[in-house]
């Protein structure tokens, strides 16, 4: 009996992992659930129209604008806390699609608590308490920087932290820096739509990264900028396992 129970539990566990690993990618209009567990505690939901599943997309660094459609890319989370009344996606990335208007939708908390704000691990330290510079030895390092679909905006408490890390390392090592910006110009089909980024976006992303590095103290003459299209996906912690989003990135290579 015990053996059967163990097998059943193992099977359930396997199914759970398999389900948790499921990746989703869809376009929808966001819904704001007005939970109140303090600052930044409201929930963001979105329904995958193809399946009717409603997801909790709150954990994205970029939160939606309730009047614009969003591209959602994520995985169903291992831990489903049901704080917002929908299936949790984590990791998850939200890209706002300004050209696609949505009717604003806000629903009440309906008993769901939301989540108290927790400072993300990727947050820049204040200037009065800076992160110490990385110690030598310095080796060649790659710092990939993710971007939301269609944007060169540096995502708060995500890509900004990565750029500061890259700048800190480049300054400490005194190395040469090559910045390569990428855009995903090859159309992908999501929720019945064809999405493709403009060819010039790789350049503006690269130049944005350059602005950050130089402003943060990396010598101008150490930095070279280039841009390309449609890179191969990159498996790097910067993308939290969402390899498809890595097609929209900037690579910062520091060579001491």
């Amino acid at each position: 009996m015990r053996r059967i129970m163990t097998a059943l539990l193992a099977l359930l566990s396997f199914n759970s992992v398999a389900q948790a690993a499921e990746a989703v990618r869809f376009i929808s209009c966001p819904i704001y659930r007005d939970t109140d567990a303090g600052r930044k505690s409201g929930c963001w939901l979105a329904e995958e129209r193809e399946t009717g599943r409603r997801f909790d997309i709150t954990q994205s660094a970029t939160k939606p604008d309730w009047s614009m459609a969003v591209l959602i890319e994520g995985r169903i989370a291992d831990n489903q806390d049901n704080a917002c009344g929908a299936m949790v996606l984590e990791p998850v990335r939200v890209s706002i699609l300004p050209a696609q208007a949505c009717t604003r939708a806000m629903i009440p908390a309906e008993g769901f608590p939301g989540r108290r704000f927790v400072l993300p691990s990727r947050n820049i330290r204040p200037l009065y308490a800076p992160e110490p510079a990385p110690p030598p030895p310095y080796t060649a390092q790659l710092f990939p920087i993710p971007f939301d679909f269609g944007r060169d905006f540096v995502v708060y408490q995500q890509s900004d932290w990565m750029l500061v890390r890259a700048a800190t390392y480049a300054k400490a090592s005194g190395g040469n820096v090559v910045i390569t910006g990428y855009a995903e110009t090859e159309p992908v089909h999501v929720s019945g739509q064809s999405l493709a980024e403009p060819a010039g976006l790789g350049k503006t992303r690269a130049e944005m990264a350059r602005l950050w590095l130089v402003s943060l103290g990396v010598p101008t003459d150490k930095v070279r900028v280039e841009w390309k299209q449609n890179p191969v996906p990159l498996a790097d912690p910067a993308f939290d396992g969402l390899t498809e989003i890595s097609r929209r990135r900037v690579d910062i290579r520091v060579t001491p």
Partner: peptide, 22 residues
């Protein structure tokens, strides 16, 4: 706490969300 809405510099372009409670 209250819902901050449609205020550029808060609700856009930074990804705090629109609206955001604070």
């Amino acid at each position: 706490m209250f819902l901050i809405t449609d205020s550029a510099g808060i609700n856009s372009p930074v990804g705090f969300g629109n609206p955001v409670r604070n």
